[in-house]
Design a protein around this nucleic acid. Structure first.
Lengths: 226, 226
DNA sequence: CGTCAAAGGCAACTCCAAGTTGCTTTTGAC
DNA sequence: GTCAAAAGCAACTTGGAGTTGCCTTTGACG
């Protein structure tokens, strides 16, 4: 029996085999997620694909949802905040970066779960945090636009974010049409136009002649879309 | 053994016990759907709740997805197309009617599956058709607005529908905030403004002079892009 | 009324994937 | 080189989907 003094040095083993195992399992989980989604994902398949025993997986992640959460967390890298100097091109860059990420093998799993499934409350909570991270990035873009004077200060940024992301997410979810650059640009222009136009309730201060703030910027940037 | 002649009169029994059974099962399925959603719905529970034997359910709907489809179909009554004479109030009425429907016990199941789950391709196909029905209704509202001159003829109605429904669906899905009348009105005003629609008699304080400039901006934009 | 087959009830299945257990083997930190 | 943490292995239990064979009820028809 080891003495208490000796036991005081716990032996966590961050490196070595364990690290390899975790990596292989999470990688395999993402691959399987992208292939069949959450509902049809079988832990046995993850075990087979990763070359790690099922028991080992269950010991580390007692439930399937936890495993999936862990795998999805590795994908949720913080979205880079581009700063091109214009709201429109920033937004396009942000969404395009997201789309590019979703097109990868790792991203496909996230996208699939993000848009089509919410079977488990634990997974649900994770997805919420991923979405919030994206939203924060885009809110920052809009706020920069406000300080620059590109977006009216009275604009309801939260509403704008709701509408913008809602349109994109719904497009992906419902497959109502291609999510290409042209459509993306149109949605962004559409919502930005509405934001510039929406003086909310008490903005009679902005008189009749002051509106077209956004248009010039947009026209100048339109060639970057394709 | 009955003769062929005698057998020619098949005995379908539309009324009576069968009808009662079907009704009870579908009703129970909707209730369970609203309670636990699709993934966690157990056929045994539906059987217990409806007082109908599990075997009977399976004989009529060999798969869970079929049962759920049948149940959801009973909810998908054609959404009424109000005609108040104005796009804005028509849209508000349409969404409010939908919201009212979703608030019922029967609607909650549909809403839950419609917004959070897509586990089965068969159910998925059904949901697609339900969504398309809603969209058709709202497209009609917008088209009436175009003929009335309320909405510019060059407005991209499909994009408008994308944005509008996207915002609402995402709001429900992500629970990012209350889906109340105030928010609904704001989203509708927001998108209509972006489309270049006249503000109609939306709010008493809104002056008639400010809107059209932006629509022109946006129009120029969308011409370039599409 | 009585008949009788379609439709419903019942119980005991099979099947498959999630999650568990008790034990043995490997490995990396010291 | 030691030794416990961590991985491997195989044989479990559990729970829900879907099935089967047989019996009971019922309603359309004469």
């Amino acid at each position: 029996m080891p003495t208490a003094a000796r036991r005081s040095t716990v032996h966590p083993r961050p490196g070595g085999r364990s690290a390899r195992v975790v990596d292989a399992v999470l990688r395999a989980t993402l691959a399987e997620l992208g292939r069949v989604g959450y509902a049809r994902l079988r832990v046995d398949d993850v075990a087979a694909r990763s070359g790690v025993n099922k028991t080992t997986i269950y010991r580390r992640w007692p439930e399937k949802s936890g495993l999936v959460c862990a795998a999805l967390k590795t994908v949720g890298r913080s979205p880079d905040v581009p700063d091109t100097g214009h709201v429109r091109s920033d937004l396009i860059a942000s969404f395009k970066a997201a789309m590019r990420g979703w097109a990868t093998a790792r991203g496909r799993g996230l996208l699939l779960v993000l848009t089509t499934e919410r079977a488990d409350p634990i997974v649900d909570r994770l997805l919420r945090s991923v979405r919030e991270r994206y939203r924060t990035t885009r809110r920052a873009i809009l706020e920069r636009g406000v300080t620059r004077g590109e977006v009216p200060a009275e604009a309801d940024l939260e509403l704008l974010l709701d509408v913008l992301t809602g349109a994109v997410v719904t497009r992906i979810r419902q497959g109502s049409g291609p999510l290409d650059s042209a459509w993306l640009a149109r949605v962004i222009d559409f919502t930005l136009a509405a934001a510039g136009a929406a003086p909310a309730a008490s903005t009679s201060s902005s008189s009749a002649s002051r509106q077209p703030r956004l248009s010039r910027t947009h026209r100048a940037r339109s060639d970057t879309v394709s």
